[in-house]
Write a protein that binds this DNA or RNA. Structure first.
Length: 388
RNA sequence: GGGCAGAUGCCGGAGCGGUUAAUCGGAACAGACUGUAAAUCUGUCGCACUCAGUGCUACAAAGGUUCGAAUCCUUUUCUGCCCA
């Protein structure tokens, strides 16, 4: 395969490029999530303008609605949603996990009920793979089984072993040459199992590898220790995709540990709930303190929202539940992550990743509104001093 | 001028003799959100304090009935509808 090219390293951090049927991804990379063949509230011009060329769509959701056969008839997912960039589809394994009350997992596959109408469905590795081939995504994921924090060792091992067997079955039935199939490392919160999972899957020789089942409520310490437990056993010459991460600070931590790709709904979800990222931390733009603030969300931000509108205006849109608010906020947050990742790549090439990370984290604080304002003042003071 | 209906916390609107500082919405305020069942969810929401507790003041106003009233009676004020 050899679709991934490692171009530079700085400590564990990596810069590279991943070649796909619809373009080349520069890594480290973050991908916006467009579950239902759309990044919520955005159009592709927005996504492209932010610099993104790879988005994630969801096999489970598209399988239920409008159906993968249907999308194939419509000319495939790229044509259907009219996106000429790269697409990665998640298999639906995560949905099986997060909607566990609706699912019954057996070795053959997963019996589950649709969250939409309660209808019964059966998902197997073969069906999940076939569905993604119908969609025609550039990167498909194997069907996997994550476990929740608090799962026993035995439960974790069973889910991991099943994930391995399923990975093998996905690989065996996968035929599309213009689509790469990535395996997913599991092993829950058992470092030993994480290692075994990485080693086992590495032997199966997939074109790319993901780390799944992390950042599902286990706490940061466990997230990073379990990432470390497996990533060093993953092939160096293949892309490493950490699923479901992250926040700005998480991006830095993941890249620092050798992750090449990430995706996360957080940026767009919290944006729709009026939380915006800035260099000094999160702000809730719908709060009354932003009334009358005739300044951009973040001074110097190059996103469309910051170039065009004031805090006061975005505040007004949110307070009145105007639909444009969701779009403007999503644009800001996604561009914020994109800039982090662009900077990270450059810093890795320049051999100064740890300084880059430190500079960001020194300013960025996850705190409440009042402390946040103090933090902002300190940030601005520091900036002023630097310039003087 | 006469008849009927009604006045409840920021707003709307339940309750119609006692577990009522008062159901439920909305607004407001705050918190959460990490491979999207999320334009969602959670908490607070009369006032004051030594705040998982205590004390005040409360259902238009005044008076009355009752052990006990937002709930029953009387009068007053205001609002809506109908008849002259």
């Amino acid at each position: 395969m050899g679709t991934f090219k490692l171009l530079a390293t700085d400590g564990s951090a990596r810069a590279g490029e991943l070649h796909t049927a619809h373009g080349t991804l520069l890594t480290p990379a973050f991908m916006p999530v467009g579950t239902q063949a759309t990044v919520k509230s955005l159009v592709w011009d927005d996504v492209k303008a932010m610099g993104y060329d790879l988005v994630l769509c969801n096999n489970y959701h598209l399988y239920l609605n409008p159906g993968c056969e249907y999308i194939a008839q419509m000319g495939g997912l790229h044509k259907f949603m009219n996106w000429d960039g790269m697409i990665l589809t998640d298999s639906g394994g995560f949905q099986v996990f997060s909607m566990a009350t609706l699912a019954k997992i057996k070795d053959e596959g997963v019996h589950f009920r649709s969250h939409i109408d309660g209808s019964k469905h059966f998902f197997t590795p073969e069906i999940a793979t076939r569905a993604q081939e119908l969609l025609g995504s550039d990167i498909a994921m194997v069907l996997d089984q994550p476990v929740a924090p608090g799962a026993t060792y035995q439960q974790t091992k069973e889910a991991m072993d099943r994930t391995h067997r399923w990975a093998e079955r996905c690989k065996a039935c996968h035929t599309r040459e213009d689509q790469q199939l990535f395996a997913i490392v599991q092993g829950g919160f058992e470092p030993e199992l994480r290692r075994i999972s990485a080693e086992t899957l590495a032997e199966m020789d997939f074109p790319g590898y993901a780390i799944g089942g992390l950042s599902v409520g286990e706490g940061k310490a466990l997230t990073w220790s379990n990432l470390e437990a497996c990533i060093k056993y993953m092939p160096e010459d293949k892309a490493r995709y950490m699923m479901g991460v992250g926040s700005p600070e998480d991006l830095f931590e993941a890249i620092d540990r050798g992750v090449d790709m990430m995706d996360c709904v957080l940026a767009t979800r919290i944006a729709r709930n009026a939380t915006l990222w800035t260099s000094y931390g999160r702000i809730n733009i719908d709060r009354p303190i932003y009334k009358g603030k005739d300044e951009p969300i973040e001074e110097g931000c190059d996103c469309y929202t910051c170039r065009t509108f004031s805090k006061a205006y975005v505040n007004h849109l949110f307070r009145n539940k105007e639909l444009t608010a969701y779009r403007l906020a999503s644009i800001h947050n996604l561009r914020f992550l994109k800039r982090i990742v662009i900077g990270a790549r450059q810093a890795i090439f320049d051999g100064r990743y740890s300084e880059y990370k430190k500079a960001f984290l020194d300013n960025y604080q996850v705190v409440n509104e009042k402390v946040r304002l103090d933090q902002k003042q300190r940030y601005l003071d520091r900036k002023a001093k630097e310039q003087a």
